[in-house]
């Protein structure tokens, strides 16, 4: 992992932890801020993917996946940023869904890494399992706003701390000469 990537991971981790704490302290409007941050992050990532596609990846075998990924992210970003006027419950359901999908993707990535005998596959697998569990618990307590927000915040805290911790991992890469 490059130094730059480590720094970005730490910054993202700190932002997520701060947002989680904010949500616990201010359950009435903290989620709106989280939604806005999520939307802007998706927008930035989408624009980056599209620029990468048009400058470089369009000449690459399989490069169209970058275009589709950028368009889907853009669509999600616009959708996320338009959710601010909805009742709180809908917004929370959306955020919980994002969390659940992230968990499922991590689970799948962990299983794929395991099938390829990649080291440390279990980190991706276990974190995915945890995210799915958080999403599941949030769904169970959907009628109790306070508990749901607390569970969701715990999940975010885990995500933020995980980002910070993983930035200190020793990099293992294949040496090819």
């Amino acid at each position: 992992m490059s130094v730059g990537k480590r720094i970005v991971k730490i910054i993202v981790g700190v932002v997520v932890v701060v947002l989680a704490i904010l949500m616990i302290l201010q359950p009435d409007w903290g989620y709106v801020l989280i939604n806005a941050v999520l939307g802007i992050a998706l927008l930035v990532s989408a624009i980056g993917s599209l620029i990468y596609y048009f400058r470089l990846a369009r000449h690459m075998v399989g490069g169209r996946s970058t275009l589709f990924s950028g368009l889907i992210q853009l669509d999600l970003a616009v959708f996320t940023l338009t959710l601010t006027d909805l009742p709180k419950i809908f917004l929370m359901i959306y955020l919980v869904s994002v969390f659940g999908v992230t968990g499922v993707l991590r689970l799948a990535r962990g299983l794929e890494a395991r099938s390829r005998k990649a080291p440390a596959w279990y980190w991706s697998f276990l974190s995915g399992l945890f995210y799915v569990l958080i999403a599941f618990l949030c769904t169970i307590f959907i009628s109790n706003n306070a508990i749901m927000v607390t569970i969701f915040s715990v999940g975010m805290l885990f995500m933020g701390v995980g980002n910070i911790v993983s930035s200190f991992y020793r990099s293992k890469i294949v040496y090819v000469q």
């Binding site: 992992m1 490059s2 130094v3 730059g4 990537k5 990099s171 293992k172 890469i173 294949v174 040496y175």
Partner: peptide, 9 residues
């Protein structure tokens, strides 16, 4: 390997 892993971007 470590030199490359820690190379800045």
């Amino acid at each position: 390997a470590m030199e490359m892993a820690d190379a800045r971007s």
